[in-house]
Design a protein around this nucleic acid. Sequence first.
DNA 1: AGCTTATTTAAGCAATTGCTTAAATAATTT
DNA 2: AAATTATTTAAGCAATTGCTTAAATAAGCT
Lengths: 122, 122
Amino acid sequence: MKDMNCIRKEADLDQIKRCQEQISEAEEAVSALTDKLSLVSNSVRLKILYVLQTEERLCVCDLSDILNMTIPAVSQHLRKLKDRDFVKAEKEGQTIFYSLRNDHRELLAPFFNLIIHQPEAI
Amino acid sequence: MKDMNCIRKEADLDQIKRCQEQISEAEEAVSALTDKLSLVSNSVRLKILYVLQTEERLCVCDLSDILNMTIPAVSQHLRKLKDRDFVKAEKEGQTIFYSLRNDHRELLAPFFNLIIHQPEAI
DNA sequence: AGCTTATTTAAGCAATTGCTTAAATAATTT
DNA sequence: AAATTATTTAAGCAATTGCTTAAATAAGCT
């Protein structure tokens, strides 16, 4: 409680302390969550996840045609999604197929649900 | 279908077209969603929303003490949250109290639920 | 009116992001 | 083996982000 900015008389010190503890307990969960959300909050990556949900698997050049983007641009997005376990890669000949992993399906489900069933509610 | 990158013989043109249409229909919803998620994917802002969920209302300097950040830093985050209707501001004397708006409670609920009840699942 | 308190706004800056182009890998076909 | 195809990696760069500090607003107190 060293550096206090709130010095007004109505300031509720107990409230501030309680909030600090609440955040302190949630610190790790918040970091883990924002780490994942920062991936999903990119529209190209959300689109990739969205089509992978219905298509089972797609290769890099499929996605490049679908999104109308260069292959390296798509590849770099896929690497981020793979690094954080959103997708997995399977090599078949010289083609690499990407598909959704189950790891974060629970996190993604509400987003897909919003997009499909109540887009006006966003 | 002008610039095709996928020229391998197994390429499924129908699949690519279907995905393009799927994305085309979802375009607006995806933009609106990522616009909001990019706000929530910042850990400072998620913490602000998280404590506001339980505390009803807090002023800028409360939050500055809670988060151990400078007042302008907090103020700038609050402005973004306010611009996108996540929070509302009520002036009371020279103090400005911020509280959660109902607009995006549905979007936020799954996040708070994860943080509180199954942090290990993130 | 002048001083303090609460907050916002603005300028500056380092770090991050997401693209582009070019080069490097690797598997396939000729 | 050489050429083609699929993908990744790396360097470069413009745009964005989130902080810092300082200045501007605005409301209360003496």
